[in-house]
Write a protein that binds this DNA or RNA. Sequence first.
DNA 1: GGCTCGTCTGGTATCGATTTCTGTAATCGA
DNA 2: TCGATTACAGAAATCGATACCAGACGAGCC
Lengths: 337, 337
Amino acid sequence: MAASAGVSPATVSRFLNGGRVRQSVAIGRAIDELGFRPSALARSLKSGSTRAIGVVVPDITNPFFAAVVKGIESVTRDDEYDLYLCNTDESVEREHRVVASLMAKKVDGLLMAPATEHAEPPSHLLSTGVPTVFIDRQLAEGDFDSVLVDNEGGAAQAAAHLISLGHERIAMISGPLETTPGRGRYEGFVEALRAAGLELRVEHTAFSDFRASGGYQSMLRLLAVQPQPTAIFVANNLMAMGALRAIHDLGLRIPDDISFLSFDSLDLGELLDPPLTVIDRPMEEQGVLAMRLLLNRMEHRDMGPPRTIRLETKLKVGASCAPPMSTLHKRVRGAAS
Amino acid sequence: MAASAGVSPATVSRFLNGGRVRQSVAIGRAIDELGFRPSALARSLKSGSTRAIGVVVPDITNPFFAAVVKGIESVTRDDEYDLYLCNTDESVEREHRVVASLMAKKVDGLLMAPATEHAEPPSHLLSTGVPTVFIDRQLAEGDFDSVLVDNEGGAAQAAAHLISLGHERIAMISGPLETTPGRGRYEGFVEALRAAGLELRVEHTAFSDFRASGGYQSMLRLLAVQPQPTAIFVANNLMAMGALRAIHDLGLRIPDDISFLSFDSLDLGELLDPPLTVIDRPMEEQGVLAMRLLLNRMEHRDMGPPRTIRLETKLKVGASCAPPMSTLHKRVRGAAS
DNA sequence: GGCTCGTCTGGTATCGATTTCTGTAATCGA
DNA sequence: TCGATTACAGAAATCGATACCAGACGAGCC
């Protein structure tokens, strides 16, 4: 390349980086003619920066993570950084591999959403000093940045709503307790029930995997229990889809036969019959905040203490939750007497 | 690194690549102690291969593309290739940037789903000889591999279904004609109507952008036309979501007020009331086939002529399409006379 | 013992850019 | 016109690995 423009490689380099160069026209022409593209590989090797950010999510088909990614992208100034988006399929093993690979590729920053966090946290991989922000996950050590949602609070809102409607036999499909959102939502829900003098009974609890298929199976199992629960709280959107399908397949009606409440809204939730009542939360915003935080760390050499940002949830009332039948009966009886 | 193990860099390299090395224990220990990870950058620079595949999609929040990605991943033997997943946000400009960046990063292969294909096809970027498979898109030149769905056929199935129910005032929300699926579905639909002696009238046609917001606006506009169409065919899933919302917001009922049929199924489509009738197609499989084709090109040096794989669509009948009211009236009148 | 052969090793060029350092020509003021 | 300053070009080292080549060493054979 340098030769074909009749200059030294150093001059080409200066030209590429916007330095003043007398032969710029000749170089420009040579570039066009040869279809020359500088190798990002060589550039990064020498410069030590790849201008790339790794994004690790457990399941890209989950609309929540898709939205988070969208938020992240909206912050990336276009020419500045590339994103390496990686899917771990909810597998710790794949997460390790993926992170190792990103480190080997020398990304300048890392955004990580949870698979699980027990079982050998990837922190030893992060000791490389690459700025990292966790999304929806908080490591036990607590010395990393996190952007979380108030899982406990949201679950408590859910419990409060169901309790206020008069439910007592309440069931829950929980996510894995090894994840921040799984544990937070479970504990928040249990605690809120307990505070109201209620109990989340073992036979009314299913621990699943945040996936639609798991939600389906769990719902079938919970509905086989007698007496049936009068309300169900599902800990995320995908399991909610599965659970809805199970209820539908069994021919049960919402909310007549069972009240339905989920954490995270569904894409078509408000078009369903009945429109779903959900614990809603900002999704894209979570990506936006995480990315901003990361860029801060990366660019301003922000070395302050680890920060945790916690977003608020909001109860969005549809029509999938109603007082339980038994309450209605009581009321009717009460009115009749 | 080499120094700290007391051997030459060449020996370390051999060790890393599984060659027989006498000092392997010493090297292994040094690696552990230093937390040494070989730089993928340097390795790729020298070897010319990055073991990475670029995947370019227009909108990762579209469940269709999410499913395609999942299919692609399922084929990737885990240790063999990394995926660089890139979102273009349906923008030609971003697509160019993304492809340029992937080329600079020297990916070994490329899977591209469409933004648009007119307006300066990225082929000049592909002249680098990087094996490329297009998904859902066919370049005019036709000298690239493609994995497509039978857009024309699917649209024709849609038309046939609506026609068989007796509809005549049929509307369509089409995607952009500059995309393969946009054009194919539009032309297939128009052609099928014409073959049946019907016409897709201008005021019953909306050209939109494959997005939910576009579908919403388009649906509002089409429903403002008098006389209202009795059936609507929507060219993709996201626009269908928007269109459903519009119908819902206007308080119209499906299929009583309007029959609804879309290309691509919706995640919760069969749980809606009524369950949607859709033109369905294999989604993950499209990713699987594309990836297999790409790996073939990459590894077996398959230099055969460009291949085009075309998947079949399938009409999945729900309950969102019914005979138009006018037909019912006629029938009623016919029966009464 | 001398020879060949096979196994392993270190030295060194290389991938393609950046970066420092030096050298030379151009520019300026006096 | 001269010396000082500026502006730019090229030579060469460098990033961290791989790959080729030549050399060291031990084993086996006549």
